[in-house]
Design a protein around this nucleic acid. Sequence first.
DNA 1: AGCTTTCTTTGACCAAGATCAAAGCTTAGC
DNA 2: GCTAAGCTTTGATCTTGGTCAAAGAAAGCT
Lengths: 233, 233
Amino acid sequence: MSDCSTCVVRNRAICASLETDELQLLSNLGRKRTIKRGETLLWEGDPAPVVANIIDGVLKLSVNLQDGREQIVSVMYASDFIGRPFGKESPYRVTAMTDAEICVFSRSSFDSFAKEHPDLQNKLLQRTLDELDRAREWMTMLGKKSATERIATLLVELSDRLTVDGCSPTTLYLDRFELPTDRQQISDILGLTIETVSRQFTRIRKAGIIELPDRRTVIIRDRSRLKALAEMA
Amino acid sequence: MSDCSTCVVRNRAICASLETDELQLLSNLGRKRTIKRGETLLWEGDPAPVVANIIDGVLKLSVNLQDGREQIVSVMYASDFIGRPFGKESPYRVTAMTDAEICVFSRSSFDSFAKEHPDLQNKLLQRTLDELDRAREWMTMLGKKSATERIATLLVELSDRLTVDGCSPTTLYLDRFELPTDRQQISDILGLTIETVSRQFTRIRKAGIIELPDRRTVIIRDRSRLKALAEMA
DNA sequence: AGCTTTCTTTGACCAAGATCAAAGCTTAGC
DNA sequence: GCTAAGCTTTGATCTTGGTCAAAGAAAGCT
């Protein structure tokens, strides 16, 4: 890879745990790669030959049931870490929701590098714990929340995580952002159908809480009411 | 703590990554503790002062919404690791579903011990990754599966994880086991209501797939059909 | 541009599961 | 043993969100 020191996620990705010279070593193992929207990086059941950092773009992890149903189990953003280090195969499919740029490592070389850099491993552990917390929050949504609550929750999360550079130390929420995906995928994230998603968007829009100038753009007009919707009914 | 070397989960818990002398050190930091069914070990939002290994019994992690709804986000069994090492507070409540025995460490002492034992940390990372996989499988269930599929999935999982000693190398399934909990909690695990859970139990029983000699006991009569139910419709 | 394809919205209807209510069973206490 | 307090099951009805179908809008192509 050319140069980690100028990488836009240098200080947010797991690489942040490394000193300059260690970073150089890791840098030799990885390479930058772009993937097009819709392209699948890892298939479920693959020996999962790679792990990666997301430099830019949005990717999804999904579980696909045999009858064609798909559940998106995670949406990953810039600086997130992708893949299954140490042993196991990837139990889910990893697909780009937008054009994306990632920094790829072969799993075996990453594994052995990690084994020798406890700080990196510690960072990875903390990230995985955070990811687990996020997954469990999502479970609560899928298990207990109504359609309206789910849409509101997703919009709040996106306006939080989709910040242009993502690294503002104070939490910066965007009031206008682009949905990284079409209605079908939103429904797969939320465990709803496309029609229900559409109806709920219309409902929240008519209530004056959001605006939808075009199919991809969301403008939040009343954040506190949106948050209230996300929390209860 | 008295003696790790005779601990029943010695070879399955994260302690398995330690040599005898290291184990002795860790052993000095921890202490055994019993908790009664229904007792809560950690509250959400707590500074989460402890982490623990489960020696025996079943515990649940739950998220409680303000209006009283509860979603159980994980069920933990013997040898599982509980708590949030490194920094963050516990975002969920940890409660015993059965009487249980656990091995507790103060978080600060565990954290510093872990920092000095990369093998332990590596083990913890692998466990967390596994736990993340489990959580995401659960998400698929909550997002996409029908009531019948959910019950069947839970029964298959319980018959797998509730093995008496849990350490058979070949996968041993139990055909007769005790539900660790009442119908209410089953419904909170599955994202259903208590009535739906009851009706589905009746349905599967009448189909001859399981028997329910009393409210807590389940006997699996036709595992392949149960598994088929768990996978699709 | 005009035409096709794909995505989104809206409507009418349906069904799975929730809610409300009551009756059976267990369990625990006296 | 008897009674009271919980669980659990069953039934009747209602609601939310799913399904089926068609009309509108964008985006792509020639």
